[in-house]
Design a binder for these strands. Structure first.
Length: 879
RNA sequence: GGGCGCGUAGCUCAGUGGGAGAGCGCUCGCUUCACACGCGAGAGGUCGCUGGUUCGAAACCAGCCGCGCCCACCA
């Protein structure tokens, strides 16, 4: 370390993330550490495909958590010597992106239709060029070690080929087809949307009871509906086949009020006799349920609401051109006028809304492209049932499987401009349809001109190909060969159906293998008050602000520490804890780096041949001192625990256990114990400290990469020339059972217990903190560990005499003017009471014959040992 | 209607069959030569309720109460 660096280390008593993070990131990027060669096999290598953020996106807490988790896994595996790729890219996000650019146009007072499709799409591309990399820069600030040199976009030229290839193949298999079918129509985006893009909201509506007169009779059939305007498209009335009230009417006809159409009365199981009047008006054109009934009974399908959300000509002169709401009022008014409205009441029920636009979904029959899912689902179900793809937490596997078993066809086409245009061409002259990767010049049947389908694909169609398309499929690229299948998918539970399930299906169908082995579902981070984090509610917290205020390491640690198998509330305290930890790491390292005297003679045994050439340069220290063996042993425990936790995706325990090891064991005890030796230039202490620090930094690096890398830049000079250039490619510590030293652990734990007992006693009897109390070792000299306990608990063993005030093990505290005798008596009385009650508890348990007989022997034995300990302490207690 | 998850210290959460834990907050004491983003000590809990299983339950089982989420075509 040169003088300037040393000076800086000495002067910087507070770790400043904002000064460090930018230049560390730059060194990582310049070093190419995130850009693996496409070599080796998927089994040897490690890979993750990032859930591609929307180009319109800004980093939110979900990304921050999700990104941190993926980065921990990627960095850990990279350090383990596996060739590791975190594949990066952005999603074109059809509706979202189109909406952003449309809004921008709107501010200029123009609509997308004013400028036309080509110009509009051009405009979106411009927008993407200008703003589309914002979120990528934000991921960098988090420290995400993605491969920024292999960025993909779901509308890249290669990606388009992948989408077209898949569409055509599914069409050729007969899975993709075009049909007139009832769909969820979103009047907001003016497009069909899939079932998954619909959310149900509780809404208070009015339920109207309408009399439908029976043909040739005075009787009426009363139906109940919340959508009276759709009666204009009614084509039947249905009753339950077992409903005795109406059994005689099945086969008869009603006359539709206002319209006069004859409606057959049919019987259908779907009708609930308990609801309303037990008679259901059937509107196949505007209700999914009625649509099914209609198809089953061969009913006419009439559509009265257009894709513009207005009543169409079919609805009749009276209401044509009106909005749905206006039409409802008009229809109700007309019914009332004709005396057909029997009753109305308020009614609370769930109503479909578009997840995207927020508009109330209008079910209607429309000509769209669909994909059958049943065949694709079968193998995707099997791989999860077999555990070939496993979910963490496990319960999500059931969620996945339940959904997969009831899959309905997927509406693929969207009436948007931004997206993958369907590879479908029509000949207007002869109505021929061509579905192909590239269309023929002219219609093969009649020679007419071909016109490409205007619709684009659901964004999730291209997303479904992500794990292999991001690696270059359909080309047989080196990346595909080296990194597919990926190891793990890290995502949120709300897109298990939309995305995860479809990736499994498409991966199996087109890439010939599962897309990932594990699916780790992250918790949803709620606002601190338990509400959803959202911009509109004002409950969102910007991760970038948090990084500004607490550093990326603090944010990462906090997110890991607060994560769980269930949803969590955002914890500012955990972030602060992470920031404090970074500072503590920095300062503890300063202590070591500024005082350790490296013993270069110990650097010869550099293990070679570790994968990736990133071996530890120093072997473990060989000190015989108990405390040195203790910290080395405790480090092994920390390695074992953290590794096991991360490998089972338990990030909170990994983070908190590392915190505990570092702060409570390494700093609070080992550093305090070893300080005098360190200042004296003790070679064993220095060697142990440097080695433990190196290991600890490596251990914590995946979670807190910046601060550990910064410290490593100072440490590296102490390690010798073989040390890896940067910590990011340092080998990850492995637990060495040889270094576990139970005897040292017991011994030092006893010192710690003793020290704490003395400190507690001092505090309770009110001794001033600075006072050094006279003490004596019963039956011996003040040798270690008493010397040590004396230093840590401020005792002096300088041969004073007198009757002991208190005894802790072999340490006797002697009277002095600093101790208030009255307080001591009081304290002793309290302790006696506590011990007596513990003794009573233990004796009670042990005198219970059933306990002694039935409990395992070791449990009984442990209880006896406790009792003995309490009784011994009682005897030692001074009167 | 079905399913899932959760009720543990003032707050946010760990703990899943043998003496109730962490972080923050709180109290007391410390400018102890790495760190006041610090050091030492402490207070604080009928583990939602009721029953059951067990020698022993915060944990396992059943029921109930409360909260949250997902799925579902009762108009």
């Amino acid at each position: 370390m040169d003088d300037e660096r040393r000076k800086r280390l000495e002067d910087t008593t507070r770790y400043d993330p904002s000064e460090v993070e930018g230049r560390i990131l730059e060194r990582w990027l310049d070093g190419g550490y995130f850009h693996p060669d496409a070599e080796g096999s998927p089994d040897e290598n490690f890979s993750i495909a990032i859930p591609p953020p929307n180009v319109t996106g800004a980093l939110h807490m979900g990304h921050a958590l999700n990104g941190t988790v993926q980065d921990v896994l990627t960095r850990l595996n990279r350090m383990r010597g596996r060739n590791s790729l975190w594949a990066l890219g952005l999603d074109h996000a059809g509706i979202a992106t189109q909406a952003v650019v449309e809004r921008e146009l709107g501010e200029e007072g123009i609509s997308r239709r004013d400028i036309g499709r080509e110009a509009f799409v051009e405009r979106v591309w411009q927008w993407r060029e200008q703003y589309g990399s914002a979120i990528i820069e934000q991921f960098k600030r988090l420290g995400a070690s993605c491969d920024y040199d292999r960025e993909r976009f779901t509308l890249d030229e290669g990606y388009v080929r992948a989408v077209v290839r898949v569409f055509v193949a599914l069409y050729d298999k007969g899975y993709i087809y075009r049909d007139n079918y009832i769909v969820n129509w979103d009047p907001g985006s003016r497009s069909a949307i899939s079932d998954l893009e619909v959310e149900n909201r509780e809404v208070e509506d009015r339920l109207y009871y309408i009399d439908y007169p029976l043909e040739g009779s005075e009787r009426v059939l009363t139906v109940a509906t919340v959508r009276p305007e759709t009666m204009l498209a009614d084509t039947a009335v249905a009753v339950n086949p077992d409903d005795e009230r109406y059994g005689d009417l099945v086969g008869e006809h009603c006359i539709l009020p206002l319209v006069g159409r004859r409606l057959p009365v049919i019987a259908d199981e779907h009708v609930d006799p308990e609801f309303g009047t037990g008679a259901l008006k059937i509107t196949p054109g505007h209700d999914p349920n009625d649509f099914e009934i209609g198809r089953a009974n061969g009913l006419d399908e009439i559509v009265v609401i257009g894709e513009d959300g207005l009543m169409n000509a079919q609805a009749g002169e009276r209401v044509a051109g009106l909005s749905v709401e206006e039409a409802r009022e008009a229809v109700v008014a007309a019914l009332r006028e004709e005396g057909r409205l029997r009753d109305e009441e308020t009614y609370l029920h769930s109503v479909p809304y578009s997840h995207r636009s927020g508009h109330r979904v209008e079910p209607l029959i429309s000509l769209q492209w669909f994909c059958r899912m049943d065949e694709l689902a079968k193998p995707a179900i099997e791989v999860v049932e077999r555990g070939q793809v496993s979910f963490v937490p496990e319960r999500f596997a059931r969620v996945y499987l339940e959904w997969m078993h009831g899959l309905r066809p997927w509406v693929l086409s969207r009436q948007l401009w931004w997206g993958h245009r369907l590879p479908v061409w029509y000949c207007d002259a002869c109505e021929e349809t061509y579905v192909a990767e590239s269309p023929p010049e002219r219609c093969g049947a009649c020679g007419g001109e071909l016109r490409q389908e205007e619709d684009v694909l659901d964004t999730w169609f291209s997303s479904a190909l992500w794990p292999f398309a991001v690696l270059g499929w359909p080309d047989n690229t080196p990346e595909l060969r080296a990194f597919y299948p990926t190891d793990v998918l890290v995502t949120a539970r709300d897109i298990i159906f939309l995305w995860v399930a479809r990736m499994v299906m498409m991966g199996l169908e087109f890439a010939g293998d599962i897309p990932f082995d594990d699916v780790y579902i992250t918790p949803v981070i709620q606002a601190a008050d338990g509400r959803r984090m959202s911009k509109s509610l004002g409950t969102g917290i910007d991760p970038l602000d948090e990084i500004d205020n607490h550093g990326a390491d603090g944010v990462r640690f906090g997110l890991l520490a607060m994560s769980s198998t269930q949803d969590v509330r955002y914890s500012a305290e955990r972030i602060q804890q992470g920031q404090d930890l970074a500072n503590k790491l920095w300062n503890a390292s300063r202590l070591v780096l500024l005082n350790a005297a490296p013993d270069n003679s110990r650097q010869e045994q550099a293990p070679v041949g570790a994968p990736g050439g990133t071996s530890l340069v120093q072997g473990p220290p060989s000190s015989e001192r108990v405390e040195d063996r203790w910290i080395v042993s405790r480090l092994q425990r920390a390695i074992e625990g953290a590794t096991a936790s991360i490998d089972s995706y338990d990030f909170a325990h990994a983070a908190l256990d590392l915190y505990d090891y570092f702060w409570s064991e390494l700093c609070d005890w080992y550093l305090e114990i070893v300080k005098p030796r360190l200042y004296d230039g003790d070679a064993d202490a220095s060697a142990t400290l440097l080695w433990v620090l190196e290991q600890t930094l490596a251990l914590i690096h995946p979670a807190m990469p910046f601060v550990t890398e910064e410290i490593y830049s100072y440490l590296r000079g102490e390690l010798g020339d073989d040390a890896p250039e940067m910590l990011v490619v340092h080998s990850y510590p492995e637990m060495d059972p040889e270094l576990i030293d139970e005897q040292a652990e017991r011994e030092v734990q006893a010192w710690i217990d003793l020290t704490r007992q003395v400190r507690r006693w001092r505090d309770l009897v009110g001794v001033a903190a600075a006072s050094v109390l006279p003490a004596r070792v019963s039956g011996g000299d003040a040798t270690p560990p008493h010397e040590l306990v004396g230093r840590l608990a401020r005792l002096s063993f300088d041969g004073a005499e007198g009757e002991a005030l208190a005894t802790f093990g072999s340490v006797e505290i002697l009277p002095s003017e600093d101790v208030d005798a009255e307080q001591v008596r009081h304290r002793i009385a309290e302790r006696r009471d506590a011990l007596l009650s513990e003794v009573a508890r233990a004796e009670g348990k042990l005198s219970n014959a059933r306990f002694v007989d039935k409990a395992p022997a070791d449990v009984v034995e442990a209880e006896r040992a406790k009792l003995a300990r309490y009784q011994a302490e009682l005897e030692e207690l001074h009167p």
